[in-house]
Design a protein around this nucleic acid. Structure first.
Length: 173
DNA sequence: CCCTGATTCGC
DNA sequence: GCGAATCAGG
């Protein structure tokens, strides 16, 4: 792969957006993160406007589980960030549901949902969660990427989702 | 060990 | 100019 004007332009944009070199490399494709860093230097845009310490992505809230509300009942959910360090990043989600008119309306608290790191496929390693996040047909599709627990392809949270019936996908912890 | 950007230097 | 190897750091 060579640095076409378009690729250089995309590089500039992504770099300015605070993406890490490896993420940019993954997105451009055909180049390593070293290549990206090298190019960044040659273009003399190494200093990024703000510190941003890469993990800017963590700011975007991943709603993972909450996708099942519709049909008649109204439901509202509020989330707040409890812990922001990557290893234990989680949302404490509490929602009041009355999804189905005939069921009990209850408030579930202490549901912990991880904020995915949203890694590109090529960034996954044996220790990163491979739970898919997003629409596979969309460009922003990626994977959870959080640290895998004991073993297995998913982090502790997604492991539970993976091996439980959808109907039981609540009351985590 | 995972990751980050910075630097060097042979190509 | 390019980027793999290497370094220093979180």
């Amino acid at each position: 792969m060579n640095w076409t004007d378009e690729r250089v332009e995309q590089l500039k944009k992504l770099w300015a957006d605070g993406l890490s070199a490896s993420q940019i490399a993954a997105q451009l494709g055909g180049v390593s993160r070293n290549a990206v860093i090298g190019k960044v230097h040659r273009l003399k845009l190494s200093g990024r406007g703000k510190t941003t310490s890469t993990q800017t992505r963590s700011k975007k809230v991943n709603t993972g589980v909450s996708g099942s509300q519709r049909s008649g009942g109204s439901a509202h959910m509020t989330s707040r960030v409890v812990n922001r360090s990557v290893g234990a990043t989680a949302l404490q989600t509490e929602y009041s549901t009355d999804l189905v008119p005939h069921t009990i309306t209850k408030t579930v608290t202490d549901v912990v949902v991880p904020i995915s790191r949203r890694l590109e496929l090529v960034q996954l390693s044996e220790r990163t969660c491979k739970w898919p996040v997003g629409d596979p047909l969309q460009p922003d599709f990626n994977f959870c990427g959080n640290d895998v627990g004991e073993s297995g392809p998913y982090c502790t949270y997604h492991s539970r989702l993976a091996y439980q019936p959808a109907s039981d996908r609540r009351r985590i912890r």
